[in-house]
Write a protein that binds this DNA or RNA. Structure first.
Lengths: 200, 200, 200, 200
DNA sequence: GATGAATGAGTATTCATTCAT
DNA sequence: CATGAATGAATACTCATTCAT
């Protein structure tokens, strides 16, 4: 109701530039000075929107986590049948689209902050809790429909998250787009089989 | 003639301090000045052993990868029977000892460099290739002994690596030592079962 | 809106201090830190006005060449008669006022840069081209008035410049103010005679 | 008698490298560290031969002045007749060989030191005094032989030095090898004519 | 809402030099 | 004769931030 605050728009614009700067220079190379130069403004104006750099990083993580969350949820909206939904979920999880490489650069940089910043860790936990919750829900629904065999849906969701993150982490080291896709299919099938037969 | 070279000793000493500094301050906060102060020497002496900070980071990664490699191999030396060996392997992979938390802070910081530095990526690839090779060997041996069912040992090794790394990655977000150990046992058992029955 | 720009004023102020610092410490001893201390400001403020030291040196040379040019031209403004003008010119050229000793320290330091920096050389060439042009004009005018005999005014101007610069260069080695003035008179008279009789 | 001190040989070798380093980087860029790297030795060994950098610069200037002197004198040895000698002298003075461009880079850098270092000035004065002395001698001899008209040989020698140095100084700004040679011939002829007719 | 001056601490790196071996 | 460790000060430059306009 009413038009969107100009401040909010500006802050988002800054975060987007910050995001791309981190892709290019890493978190350690992304300074406010470089950011302001890239945006063609003064760094003092930057501080007008984010009083400290710390604030900016925190805002980035919040935004990034929202991005991460919003990328997964819409994938489930369309399909209605349980079969289609579960297929869609695991298809999405092991597709290159799930996380493109550029994203990873920022994601892992922010990830390293969980070790020194409890707030960052809490935000990551929140995001993964939501991720877990959604998977739980989908797994339960699929199990109810008799599509998969699951004894502990919550535990299965944890396992699935680990597998997905491990898959992405490892594939990024290999950095071969072809292998990424091929392995994605293999992992996807493997996961499907295990869930169908029951992950004991 | 000439003075005895301390290069080997000193460089290692510097890397160890650098390693702990990164744990405390992150890669972005680990400056040469802080490092020299922590060591009680002049930063110019640091440059005597590592001409540039870049050289130091590269050396750190080499050292870190060696550490990573050397932590796994010795775990297999003692045991002789195939049963004991395979048990030892998966025990090791999902134990908190496999990677303690302190290690992770440096490990993931260095990991982010693979996106901007091909040399770093190559070093990570090499390490994981060795890791993969060893797992392949153990899996084949265990399969030959009839302990597990495996159709493609190489692929199974890739899967195992992904699972291990994903497990560590996800557990570090939760950051609960208790959950880490409990989940470690669960994952370990799961992996064991899947390998015994055959990962299809 | 925004704060009033001090760029023009501040840059000039900095160049003047830089100029005097070079007199005292030479180009090789004139650091940005010393300069900022001398001005009672932070060196970071210096970089606000000149992004790099190189920029500062380039600006200094431009300023110095303008100084050099502006010192000569006004000497001709007042006098009207051709006789007076030509007298004034050669009077000026061989007077200690033409280049005082302090000036020389900076001038020759900058001169050495022409060997490694094409931009600096171009700026020197431009200044001397203007110098040459003015001398040409004066020589032609004096020749037209029958005061001097000249076959090639352009060549005569080149010769005159060489003589002036050589005179200054050599006298600075001797560094004797008395000799400088005495020799100045001798050279001045010599040049006058040669031009009156015709430099063949 | 006895073989040449190895120290002297080494010192000379160092000076030669220092000389070329100054050509490439200027006096302000020629550090002992760069010099030692260029020579493939430790900078501490450099200090063994020249206790301080200041000593090295002083030695360079002595060596440079000797070079400067030794380049002129041998030109007179061969010819016997007064005509040939005077021709040779002014030929030499305005030839590009007299000072090639590389030389100039170091020469003017050292020249700037005369403003801050009395020792350097004294050494320059000594060299030019010798230069003056030789020219005096040649001028007197040529005058005695009736080749030229000169009232004050000493003064004429001073004038000649100024002209030569001014010629070189100015031509180096233009930096055109062709113009250098062409102008050299013009200046040479001019000087010859003036001396023949008498520099009043 | 935005500019630009100014700060103060910090960055990696270089410098000339000393000294033990 | 030469190496290599070590020093201590200095270098140009960047950083996040504050404040006046």
């Amino acid at each position: 109701m009413g038009r969107k605050s100009l401040v909010a728009v500006r802050r988002l614009e800054i975060l987007e530039h910050f995001y791309h700067l981190i892709i290019e220079e890493g978190l350690e190379g992304a300074s406010t000075v470089k950011l302001s130069r890239r945006m063609g403004i003064r760094s003092s104006l930057l501080m007008h929107y984010f009083p400290t750099k710390e604030d900016m990083i925190q805002a980035l993580i919040v935004w990034l986590m929202e991005l991460y969350e919003n990328r997964f949820l819409p994938m489930l909206e369309e399909k209605q049948s349980p079969e289609a939904r579960f297929e869609t979920v695991i298809d999405a999880l092991f597709s290159p689209a799930w996380e493109n490489l550029a994203d990873g650069r920022v994601f892992y940089s922010c990830y390293t902050l969980i070790f020194r910043d409890e707030g960052v860790r809490a935000r990551f936990q929140q995001t993964f809790a939501r991720f877990h919750e959604h998977l739980c829900h989908e797994i339960t629904r699929a199990a109810d429909a008799g599509l998969i065999k699951v004894s502990d849906p919550s535990q299965s969701a944890h396992i699935l998250i680990s597998w997905v993150e491990g898959f992405n982490f490892y594939q990024r080291i290999l950095a071969d787009q072809e292998s990424f896709e091929a392995q994605g299919k293999i992992f996807r099938r493997l996961v499907e089989n295990l869930f169908r037969e029951g992950v004991h």
